[in-house]
Design a protein around this nucleic acid. Structure first.
Lengths: 112, 112
DNA sequence: TATAATATATCATCATATGATATAAATGTA
DNA sequence: TACATTTATATCATATGATGATATATTATA
């Protein structure tokens, strides 16, 4: 049977942080809180971004529902596919940093 | 006299790469080519993204026009304000990588 | 019992990105 | 010289992404 998936080739910051957070199973509200804590309040995902992004990540099969007795909470976890994309996205960001560092060095401009 | 500026607090990938490229003065078309070369063809900025983003970066005073005799080409360079924001954005990306690395390590999942 | 925190969800709007298209000059080549 | 390609800038319409505001219900706490 055909499964219709929405592809997400590149991750913007919001889905990136959600995938990182969901390497440990959590429900939506707790993902919000954990990202806020992880980033010392520097990156905040509100409910609108949270729940719309969760739907997109589910449809792209980058996260999946985990069954936990709690009717009220919906618990998710990053799938293998999600972890693979996350690795790629970490490397992409490392490269962006490297490109910038190289240019700063060439211009004799300190990054510190 | 009042100068109307559009603020850009966070940089997405396209303006990030344009600011990096414009640490050396260039005209729009050459920025496109240089980003393609810099990223080994992994990040391509087409004309629509290029010229609309240039307008936004100008309005935010993150880049400025450099006078060069050529009537046909418009040469730009990243301003001090642009360099400052770029530094901040490099750090932001470094932190995102660190957050992900920490989680990968905790989960015993290799990033390589 | 009133208040705050937890928890999920959608709507309308704004911001951002981009394929397609247009225009024109310069350069290369047949 | 004629033709194609590359250089160079620009805009339109559309698609995608992000988010403030709002709504609803449950659970914990003062």
């Amino acid at each position: 049977m055909a499964r219709y998936t929405t592809e997400m080739e590149e991750l913007t910051d919001t889905p990136f942080y959600i995938l990182v957070s969901l390497m440990e199973a959590k429900h939506g509200y707790f993902i919000m809180k954990s990202i806020e804590t992880m980033t010392n309040g520097n990156f905040i995902v509100g409910p609108a971004s949270m729940y719309t992004t969760i739907q997109k990540l589910l449809s792209a099969e980058l996260i999946e529902l985990v069954d936990e007795g709690d009717r009220r909470k919906k618990t998710y976890i990053t799938t293998k596919k999600g972890v693979q994309l996350l690795k790629k996205e970490v490397k992409r960001r490392q490269e962006m940093v490297r490109h910038a560092e190289k240019m700063f060095k060439e211009k004799g401009e300190p990054l510190a």
